[in-house]
Nucleic acid binder design. Structure first.
Lengths: 77, 77
DNA sequence: GCCCATTTGTACGTATGTATG
DNA sequence: GCATACATACGTACAAATGGG
């Protein structure tokens, strides 16, 4: 799902994947998405890259991060 | 102007300083603000921290970055 | 209240890529 | 080709919040 050779930045590719998971219901409203550590494992990307992806989703108000708990899907988004 | 010991994140403190420079006219519309390298020199912060500050300003549409040229103050902002 | 595991946040440094002139 | 400047990505370390025991 992530094309390391492709022209698009990895953090934007990952943001697109996560956005799709929210849209499809794979990640549900008011439930946490995978943790940063889990996403690192799954995609083999650096922590900073994962965080930057999530920053994109936060700026789109698709998710809301809570330190110590997780990153939650915004309801009705 | 930047309080290394203070509670506020350095990138937010720097964003506030730059926002003030724009508001005061120290950085003028359609003119470039200081380069990342110059800001690193002036504030003694890491490059990544400077970039994150500027990301904040970009998200506020106060500036627009152009690779190879600089980061420009948005007119009428 | 205290420790501990989990999780997000911040900051550093470095290297490489890409766009402009 | 070259210099300048922003962009992406990696790795690392520590800080801060949360929740459970």
């Amino acid at each position: 799902m992530i094309d390391l050779e492709g022209p698009d930045p990895l953090y934007l590719q990952l943001a697109a994947v996560l956005r799709e998971r929210i849209a499809s219901g794979a990640y549900q409203p008011n439930r946490p998405i995978a943790s940063v550590a889990e996403l690192q494992e799954e995609f083999g990307l650096a922590r900073g890259t994962i965080l930057k992806s999530i920053d994109v989703l936060k700026s789109e108000k698709l998710v809301r991060a809570v330190p110590g708990r997780g990153t939650f899907v915004t309801p009705s988004a």
